[in-house]
């Protein structure tokens, strides 16, 4: 009996998504006294088995498919499903990436497993008999809890689970599985792959948004916000007032008449917090308000508030993030 994780690598490295899913799998498997198996594509992760062990895997299964392209699930779905069929894990976990979300339902279908996507939490019930899966429905207004079936496939929402704090093991057992291609040519083919650079993060899709308002006072300080956003892997936007003042292009306007954003983290710098603006960020997970005026309306909507002049505060914040990253 085992928990199986399909680890998708990011630019050939064991990235955040894989670390999180393996970390989550480890804690479930420990409670159930099971092993964690980690499936990777050869070429994609064949050389990273040690890291996968440290991230929580007992065994790594390297699947070799001659025609596989990691960003085209169609090219290795059959091999992956076959591998899973041979093992019949209790739980199969994917990260909620485009690839993971494509593979999961089809692997489930081929194994006649249950499928629950976009899980925010996975926990073993107190009696140790059930795995409980929580996922948002109706745009997150309601959460649903499912009991995992005997055979269950899930995808996990990025940033919902924690990577392990300490390396698990450096020398997992490694098995190689060679898939024999069947029947004719592959029906799909990747023509070109384009990765976005960090500075090119789209405002609507950014996980972190740093925005400035009327209180910024001019175009120059936006460089400071750019730097902060860059460090957080996010994008910069502004209120209508900042756009009207010509400090930012109109494409960066956030609010009902601009872009509607729902990042995990929204940092409002020197933004008063008009309803026009706040309605455009209402679905952000955490809103941080930075304003010199403790009475500023932004603090009615913000989850975390900092009463400081941003000119002093933001440079210090940038410095602290940099030093935290350095160590």
């Amino acid at each position: 009996m085992a928990v199986l994780v399909f680890a998708e690598l990011e630019n050939g490295k064991v990235g955040r998504n894989a670390l999180e899913v393996l970390g989550g799998a480890r804690s479930v498997a420990d409670k159930l006294k099971m092993e964690v198996l980690c499936c990777v594509l050869d070429g994609d992760g064949g050389q990273r088995t040690g890291e996968l062990g440290q991230a929580g895997a007992d065994r790594v299964i390297v699947v070799k498919v001659a025609t596989a392209n990691p960003s085209d699930p169609e090219s290795y779905l059959a091999a992956l499903a076959e591998t899973c069929t041979g093992i019949r894990p209790v739980l199969i976990m994917f990260a909620g990436t485009p690839v993971g979300r494509q593979l999961a339902p089809r692997v489930a279908h081929r194994l006649s497993y249950g499928i629950v996507t976009d899980c925010l939490s996975i926990r073993v019930a107190d009696d140790g008999r059930e795995i409980l899966l929580t996922r948002p429905i109706y745009g997150g207004k309601v959460h649903a809890v499912f009991a995992a079936r005997e055979g269950q496939v899930i995808t996990v929402r990025p940033r919902a689970l924690r990577p392990l704090e300490h390396p698990y093991r450096a020398d997992p057992q490694v098995d190689y599985v060679e898939a024999t291609p069947r029947g004719g040519q592959p029906r799909t083919r990747v023509v070109e792959v384009h990765k976005e650079t960090e500075s090119g993060v789209k405002l609507e899709e950014a996980k972190v948004v740093v925005a400035g308002g009327r209180g910024i006072g001019g175009p120059e300080p936006f460089a400071m916000l750019e730097e902060l956003a860059g460090l957080l892997g996010g994008a910069v936007g502004g209120s209508r007032a900042a756009v009207d003042a010509g400090w930012l292009p109109a494409t960066r306007q956030i609010g009902l008449t601009g872009k509607i954003v729902s990042p995990d983290l929204y940092v409002a710098v020197a933004i008063s917090g008009s309803s026009q603006h706040m309605a455009g960020v209402a679905n952000s997970r955490v809103i941080v308000g930075i304003n010199i005026d403790p009475e500023a309306p932004i603090f009615h909507s913000a989850h975390l508030g900092v009463v400081e002049d941003y000119r002093e505060f933001v440079p210090v914040l940038i410095e602290k993030i940099k030093s935290a990253k350095a160590c």
Binding site: H143, F299, F313
Partner: peptide, 29 residues
């Protein structure tokens, strides 16, 4: 397998970051 449906509680009460200086507040944040 659906066991339960619930409305997640969201708190919109702003928590002010305490600190004596911008540096302290930055660390706390």
């Amino acid at each position: 397998g659906l066991k339960e449906l619930f409305t997640p509680v969201s708190t919109t009460v702003c928590e002010f970051i305490a600190g004596e200086s911008p540096a302290e507040k930055a660390l706390a944040l």
